[in-house]
Simulated assay, not measured.
Amino acid sequence: MDSGAALNAFAGDSVTVALSGIDILNVHVGDILCDSNNLVPVTSRLKARIALFTPKVPLLAGQECVFHNQSYTESCLIKKLLSQINRNTGEIQKKNPRMLTKNTSGEIELTLQRPVCAELYSASRELGRFMLRDSGTTIAAGVITEILS
């Protein structure tokens, strides 16, 4: 910490972390430090609830986009559109919709190109939120509801 060495830090503290026994080439943007007894899940498949903004084209199963979470980005594929959800009430309006259009919400299944650290929104608001982008435009915001193996 700014005042010197410390054994622990709390939210809001400004700290510099020194890692020993780890090659700096193995540390990447998006890597997460966590308690070894309570590891953050690593996955390449997840279910999420999203709120679609105003994409140029409707969201379809099989569409590729970019998954943004915290400081990392990863290519992803919309594997399935599971349901269309009423934005105000959260009730399912349609199961297995053919597409999601602008200003709608839904539940989807995503497949990421590489495994990433992810957490359920209910467990960690910071790690459980993400954005989907396509062609440099943010098309949706979402929260992770289930981590699939």
Rank of each mutant, 00 (worst) to 15 (best):
S135L: 15
D23I: 09
P58Y: 03
P115E: 11
A61M: 01
V40C: 08
Q93E: 13
K94R: 11
D134L: 15
A118R: 07
V116I: 10
V40E: 07
A118H: 08
S122Y: 11
E146H: 15
H68G: 03
L33S: 07
E126A: 12
N37A: 15
L127D: 09
R49S: 09
A61Q: 03
L127S: 14
L33V: 07
I92P: 04
P115T: 04
Q93V: 11
R125E: 15
T54P: 00
A123Q: 10
K80M: 00
G30K: 05
Q70G: 02
G106Q: 08
A51Y: 14
K102D: 08
V57G: 00
E64Y: 11
V66Q: 08
E107C: 06
G62F: 00
I85D: 00
N103L: 11
K79E: 13
R125C: 10
Q84M: 06
E146P: 06
V27D: 06
R87T: 06
I85C: 01
M131P: 00
V143D: 03
K94V: 09
V66S: 12
L19P: 02
I50R: 04
T138N: 13
N37V: 09
F130L: 08
V42S: 11
L52K: 00
S44L: 02
L112K: 02
T54E: 12
T104C: 07
T137L: 15
N88E: 14
L77D: 00
L59V: 10
I144G: 09
K47D: 09
R98H: 09
S71M: 06
G128Q: 04
Y72N: 02
I32R: 05
K102E: 14
S105W: 03
A48G: 13
V116H: 07
R125D: 07
I24H: 06
S71P: 01
D134W: 12
S44R: 08
E119Q: 14
I108S: 08
D31L: 09
Q84T: 04
I139M: 08
F53T: 09
K79G: 00
I92N: 03
L19F: 14
S83V: 01
C76F: 03
T89K: 06
S124V: 10
T54D: 11
I24T: 12
Y72Q: 07
G21L: 08
E64D: 12
L25S: 15
L39Y: 09
G142H: 11
Q113C: 07
I32S: 04
K56M: 08
Y72P: 02
A61C: 01
D23Q: 12
E146C: 12
R125Y: 10
I22V: 15
V17W: 02
E109L: 04
C34L: 11
N103A: 10
L60I: 02
L77R: 10
K47G: 04
L82W: 03
A48R: 05
I22T: 13
K95T: 06
L132V: 06
Q113A: 14
K94L: 13
S122F: 06
S20K: 14
A140H: 12
Y121D: 07
L81C: 01
E64R: 10
T43A: 15
P55F: 08
I139W: 11
S135H: 13
L25D: 15
D35H: 12
G90I: 02
G136M: 06
